[in-house]
């Protein structure tokens, strides 16, 4: 009888431990919003890369295509050069937080500051400001995991990004990050008053040298009528040797 009582007590304790373990286990193994964003950034940041692609810009007057190639280093240095006939030789250089434009018909480079950063890149849905972000989101935003949702049949973490200060393009963003490959599948950008400004959707991804990244992205400026921009990457080489001084201002005008 005594033995039976002890056995019952043990069984109850084991049951309690199992129940506790079952409750604790999900939070022990799930990722936090910060960790998800970190893994997403790791996935989309490369030491160096060479990219070739095109932008298909749609507005109420029709479609047009701009082709380009780009060199990148880390997440805050890139040089984009356009190769399509109407923009041939035009370049956009990002060095840290500075953005410079070079046009073959101009004898000086244009450093974009202030409200000029809100202007559109070649009339697309991408603003110059969109090209300056991305360096350590944690510096500028606080993250909150809102839950999980399915985007194009992919299970995604839904994360809200709230700006820490005012020196960012968007006070609030919502990211949908793939729970398997940590690719950003969709994002929405909002104004301070809550108005939706932009939607970015990843239509295709590609894998290269162990990295998975968006290969076709559609960006829609919600403030413009009948507008949309598709960014399509045709070639991505990771870990390439960059041309010497490729991110220098001297090289920009050369």
């Amino acid at each position: 009888m005594q033995y039976l009582r002890i056995a019952r007590r043990k069984a109850w304790r084991i049951g309690l431990l199992v129940a506790l373990a079952a409750l604790v286990a999900p939070s022990a193994f799930a990722l936090s919003a910060d960790e998800i964003i970190e893994r997403m950034e790791d996935n989309q940041t490369h030491p160096t890369s060479y990219i070739e692609g095109e932008m298909v810009i749609t507005d109420r007057f029709g479609d047009r295509v701009s082709t380009f190639f780009a060199h990148t280093e880390g997440d805050d240095r890139f040089l984009v050069e356009f190769t399509s006939r109407d923009e041939e030789g035009q370049r956009v250089l990002r060095r840290n937080d500075d953005l410079y434009l070079y046009y073959p018909d101009a004898r000086e480079t244009i450093r974009l500051t202030g409200s000029a950063l809100r202007d559109s890149l070649l009339g697309s849905d991408i603003s110059y400001e969109d090209m300056t972000g991305g360096r350590g989101l944690a510096e500028d935003y606080k993250f909150e995991l809102l839950g999980e949702e399915t985007v194009d049949d992919r299970r995604c973490y839904k994360i809200e990004l709230t700006a820490r200060g005012t020196n960012v393009a968007y006070p609030k963003q919502i990211y949908w990050v793939d729970s398997e490959d940590f690719v950003l599948r969709k994002s929405e950008q909002y104004a301070r008053a809550g108005r939706k400004l932009k939607v970015t959707e990843v239509l295709e991804t590609m894998e290269q040298d162990g990295y998975i990244f968006p290969a076709r992205i559609r960006i829609t400026d919600q403030t413009r009528r009948s507008s949309g921009t598709e960014m399509i990457l045709h070639q991505v080489d990771i870990g390439v040797d960059l041309p010497r001084g490729v991110f220098s201002l001297e090289q920009l005008t050369w």
Partner: peptide, 18 residues
Amino acid sequence: DTVTFLTQTRARTSNAFT
């Protein structure tokens, strides 16, 4: 002096000139 202007072209893209 010289002055550089940014404009929108017939191709609805941008260009700058001095």
